[in-house]
Design a protein around this nucleic acid. Structure first.
Lengths: 203, 203
DNA sequence: CCCCTAATGGGTCTTTAGTTCCGTTAAGAT
DNA sequence: ATCTTAACGGAACTAAAGACCCATTAGGGG
């Protein structure tokens, strides 16, 4: 007894528990691709994962908790920043990696679901914030290296440059619903670079 | 009879019908402020609006339909572009108007709800797309005037400049969950202007 | 002012989401 | 290998969402 205070799955995390978690998160992604966040039901996820729905309700707080956990899982798989030797190519690589993420069927649907969940759930919002915070910090290193090489002015805010590249792509994806293609991504990288070279990101 | 093919509320749109619609859309906004899109129930909206829930189910397709209709309503209230005489001030005004919209309690909650709904509903996505399409076209005129005045290079894509100003604000609001304040808005306008002056928005 | 019927609203029914109970299975410590 | 109990899963239960029926109300044309 006296195990109520702990979350289920923390005392015996190996074996079955790990398999259940993997199956549930996989099933969650499948459901998100099919129905989006608004159509995500714990019941359907449990059925698809082949686990009892009691287990899903016990381990996760709700639909938002599921996608938040999914986001946390994806955060660990985040790739390192590019280092091609020129800032132009590094920023282009950054834009294309964002493009690849949001146009991938499973990953794109998952990202949109987490963003939708985060509009009304603190847990999902925190997971998103952490994920992108890390990603921005990681790719910001590319800008720091460029400053050292003399390609960009001293004092350029690398984090802001990275944000400036991603922003138009997410804006189109989420807000204006315009298509996001390779040309859009490359233009976004180029524009951020032009602004950065002209000192718009200092301070 | 033979009225099934028409949507309810189209034959006698005046008086009661208009009052019901206004009450329902008002109630929808209230509920969105309190619970967000994921927590929006037709039942609660009907109760708050003081109308029968049958009426809400008859006139709107679902939660997504409600927010889509709300967005359509807001689209008509969209303001004209600024014309201060300088492109710097016009773009600053644009950024500040976006800031005002997303930081307003009711309007901000509504926008986030429509964006969340649009991730998995075509109707909401179309309403969003139309709303921002109009807004971008309207404010794009500021850039055209600036080109005529010789403040920006010939061939600058005004729509893209406007998108570039809004994008970082929505990116922070929706994706990274960072605070959006006046300084952020003004920086966004400045950076877009620097890039535009240096020809990054030509073509 | 009256009439016709579009539109609303209360009440009821069905479906689905979410909870609880308790027996069963399998981690992982000894 | 054995034992303890964390964790799972089936089933029954409660609550809420959504659909439907039909009586009542009020637009708006005559």
């Amino acid at each position: 007894m006296e195990q109520d205070s702990r979350l289920a799955g923390t005392v015996r995390p190996g074996g079955r528990t790990a398999r259940v978690r993997a199956a549930v998160l996989e099933a969650t992604q499948d459901e998100l691709v099919l129905h989006g966040f608004h159509g995500l039901s714990m019941d359907a996820v449990a059925a698809r994962a082949g686990v009892g729905k009691t287990t899903v309700y016990r381990r996760w707080t709700g639909a938002a908790g599921l996608v938040a956990d999914l986001m946390t899982e994806l955060a660990d798989q985040s790739a390192a920043h590019a280092n091609t030797g020129t800032i132009e190519e590094d920023l282009r690589a950054n834009a294309l990696s964002v493009l690849a993420a949001i146009t991938d069927e499973r990953l794109g649907a998952t990202l949109q679901a987490v963003i939708a969940a985060a509009t009304c759930d603190e847990e999902a919002a925190a997971a998103l914030s952490t994920f992108y915070g890390r990603r921005i910090a990681e790719w910001g290193k590319s800008i720091d290296l460029a400053i050292q090489r003399g390609e960009l002015p001293e004092g350029t805010d690398g984090h802001e440059v990275i944000r400036a590249i991603s922003a138009p792509l997410y804006y189109r994806l989420l807000v204006t619903k315009e298509p996001v293609d390779k040309a859009t991504a490359e233009r976004s990288a180029t524009r951020a670079l032009v602004a950065a070279r002209n000192g718009a990101f200092i301070g």
